[in-house]
């Protein structure tokens, strides 16, 4: 897919091409990620969204080369600044993580080592990559700088994780994630466990830090409200497929894929009371996906063609791609009809 960020750089820092990840189970192969391709631009924040089990986290872990058995990467290409991540040896990967790619993990609350002080965990990151630091004073100043960037007080330097609040632990994780100025930071549901005001403070910190040190960011989440607030582009995943990718403004103003519509319609609003849109989640057996379009079993507009042919990404706008047959020119009439019926139910 080839989009450009509305007002940012057009330099691609991360290029994912035909990434496919399976889980081998005794009952057969589960296709967790199915031939996904996208670019991430310098300085951009990309949201990766979808419900549980759609493959968004697996995609992220695939990019980080952290897919665990029985999961494995079937094929694909992941290039960070031109470096093919899949070709790196385990040792090269270790030095690449934190400098090329870093992770702010899901539920960062529990991801700090409970037996190490905050400073030691950050020093660990630095020394693992830059070797033993002899100038302890400079090292401390450097960590204080990191604290300042993410809004942490210096007094937590010597503390253990259990002495910190959830929001503070989250910030420590952000500080670790950006400590070595990586090219790409992946934040996996990084604020989902926080109170709403703390979530806002932490999310805004994340974006400010990103802008300040100029990294590119992938935010994985299921909260469409939060993503609307902080990302530049959104990629929507369903059952391992990327069904739509577009700048955040267009996707909320005019979602094209029926699944994206459903996702946006199911957000509870605080501005308008609406009938609830009930969805049951992914319904098919992931070992045995339906023929043709992955979404057709839940799609209100599906017709025979959707069972026969798999929809490929169609470029509807310079920055907007959608994988749905209705946007194929030959089915324009069907689209017009479908959209008319949903507009006036």
């Amino acid at each position: 897919m080839s989009q450009t960020r509305s007002n940012g750089s057009e330099r691609v820092v991360l290029n994912v091409e035909k990434l496919r990840i399976h889980y081998a189970t005794p009952q057969g192969e589960v296709i967790a990620v199915s031939d996904i391709s996208f670019d991430l631009y310098e300085g951009e924040t990309l949201g990766l969204v979808g419900e549980s089990g759609c493959g968004k986290s697996t995609t992220a872990y695939g990019i980080l080369q952290l897919v665990q058995p029985p999961g494995y990467i079937v094929h694909g290409s992941i290039k960070v600044d031109g470096t093919e991540v899949l070709d790196l040896s385990e040792e090269e990967l270790r030095s690449f993580r934190w400098t090329g790619l870093s992770l702010i993990p899901q539920g960062a609350m529990n991801s700090l080592n409970p037996t190490m002080r905050v400073k030691d965990q950050i020093i660990d990151v630095i020394e693992a990559h830059e070797g033993k630091q002899t100038d302890k004073k400079a090292l401390r100043e450097r960590i204080y700088d990191l604290f300042a960037k993410v809004g942490l007080p210096n007094r937590i330097y010597n503390m253990y994780p259990h002495e910190l609040s959830g929001g503070m632990k989250q910030r420590v994780c952000i500080a670790m994630g950006v400590a070595l100025h990586p090219t790409v930071v992946i934040a996996d549901e990084a604020t989902s466990a926080l109170d709403v005001v703390v979530q806002r403070i932490v999310a805004q910190t994340l974006i400010q830090v990103k802008d300040e040190i100029g990294v590119s960011l992938i935010v994985i989440g299921h909260d469409m409200g939060l993503l609307a607030q902080i990302v530049d582009r959104i990629a929507v995943m369903y059952a391992g497929k990327m069904v739509e990718i577009a700048p955040v403004e267009s996707i909320y103003a005019e979602p094209l894929h029926p699944y994206t519509k459903l996702l946006i319609d199911s957000i509870p609003s605080i501005k308008e009371r609406k009938p609830l849109r009930i969805t049951e989640g992914i319904t098919h057996d992931p070992r045995n996906p339906p023929s043709g379009c992955i979404f057709r079993l839940r799609c209100p507009f599906a017709w025979e063609h959707c069972a026969e042919v798999e929809p490929l990404p169609i470029q509807v706008d310079r920055k907007h791609e959608v994988a749905c047959h209705m946007f194929d020119e030959q089915f324009e009439e069907r689209r017009a009809h479908a959209f008319a019926t949903t507009a006036n139910p």
């Binding site: 809004g151 609040s165 709403v196 005001v197 806002r200 469409m224 409200g225 609307a228 955040v248 946006i264």
Partner: peptide
């Protein structure tokens, strides 16, 4: 008012005002 303003609105044209001075997390407690 602060709480409701902090609820993320699923509308990218209605973003949080980043310049708003939020209390630090510690002050909040």
């Amino acid at each position: 008012q602060l709480l409701i303003d902090s609820v993320p609105v699923p509308d990218p044209t209605d973003k949080w005002d980043v310049n708003i001075s939020l209390p630090s997390e510690e002050e909040m407690r």
